[in-house]
Design a protein around this nucleic acid. Structure first.
Length: 305
DNA sequence: CGTTTTTGACCTGCGC
DNA sequence: GCGCAGGTCAAAAACG
């Protein structure tokens, strides 16, 4: 019924809430600003978001910011993203950066299986009806647990190489956006990590990538293309097993936002005034590659010819 | 020929 | 209950 979760949001005006389709978290307090991890770990889900912020050059004090997020404060604008009306309140800096958002949660695994894949679970359930309902329930629950990380990258290509192999399993038109959203799934067996990729309608040069779940395997070594070579280079340093390197081959700047996981309540955690937005944006902007370079080799930052 | 992408249909959640 | 929008499936097509 209630899975204890710690939901954290890093939020910049860049990352629209909808990408996490998360409801406002009951609370975003309670994270433990003490450990340190890399973006790699971040992708793996075992992250300390505060550290993540640090890792990306975010002031630790930005934790205040976390509690300032309120998706409900402007549900329409945030949702519609159509910029047609109130776009001016989202200062989409032309010199866009990467926003990173995430939501942590315990479980994961397999939220993708919905209908047509009869999963051998609870054979004792008896009736198919109950089975169905049960599935739906479980699915719903699980869906909320998925840890997510979203970030925005300035890139000309939609699908950014991150070292893993992905298979596209869907594409959908996004309301109020001329750009479709693509759905990818990690091709590694038993890995249920998914990611969504879409282009910001506000800044077409910006690609919004949302990772969902955590890789439970090392980076495939049989990567086609250059990614594998690139990855073996450095990003995987920390842990042999935890590997979630992200490569950003095509962009220049990043800013990260952390989002709350899907919460179960509709509580607002506070107002999210525009001036805070701006403040946030500043804070989350990575001026140069600075700290990020610790994690991402400079070669990732090469610019598109 | 195996793998990935495309794409229309289907399912689910949510707001009205 | 209905309609909308997001998310997923899976058959067919495309690709290497």
């Amino acid at each position: 019924m209630s899975n204890e979760r710690r939901d954290f949001y890093y939020h910049t005006p860049f990352l629209e809430d909808r990408h996490l389709d998360a409801k406002p978290p009951p609370s975003i307090h309670g994270f433990d600003p003490s450990s340190y991890m890399s973006l790699t770990e971040c992708l793996h889900g075992s992250v300390d978001y505060n550290s993540l912020a640090k890792a990306f050059g975010l002031s630790p004090s930005s934790s205040e910011v976390f509690s300032s997020i309120d998706e409900n404060s402007k549900p329409v604008e945030a949702r519609d993203l159509d910029g047609g009306n109130s776009t001016d309140q989202i200062p989409a800096t032309p010199n866009s950066s990467v926003s990173f958002s995430s939501s942590e949660a315990g479980g994961d695994e397999d939220s993708g299986k919905t209908k047509k894949e009869p999963q051998p679970e609870n054979p004792e359930d008896g009736g198919e009806y109950s089975n169905k309902k049960d599935k739906a329930k479980k699915k719903a629950e699980k869906r909320q647990k998925e840890p997510r990380f979203a970030f925005m990258t300035k890139s000309e290509v939609d699908h950014l190489e991150d070292g893993y192999r992905w298979r596209k399993y869907g594409q959908k038109a996004v309301k109020n956006s001329p750009y479709p959203r693509s759905y990818y799934r990690c091709t590694t067996q038993k890995c249920t990590v998914k990611k969504r990729v879409e282009r910001s309608f506000q800044d077409p040069s910006t690609v919004i990538t949302t990772y969902e779940g955590q890789h439970n395997h090392p980076i495939p070594t049989t990567l086609r293309g250059s990614a594998s070579a690139v990855f073996s280079h450095s990003m995987l340093a920390p842990t042999p097993m935890s590997t979630g390197p992200i490569s950003f081959p095509h962009h220049q700047e990043y800013s990260f936002v952390q989002f709350p996981a899907a919460a179960t309540s509709h509580q607002n955690i506070g107002a999210y005034p525009q001036n805070v937005n701006q403040h946030l944006h500043q804070q989350y902007q990575v001026p140069d590659y600075g700290l990020l370079q610790d994690i991402v080799p400079s070669m990732f930052f090469r610019q598109e010819p």
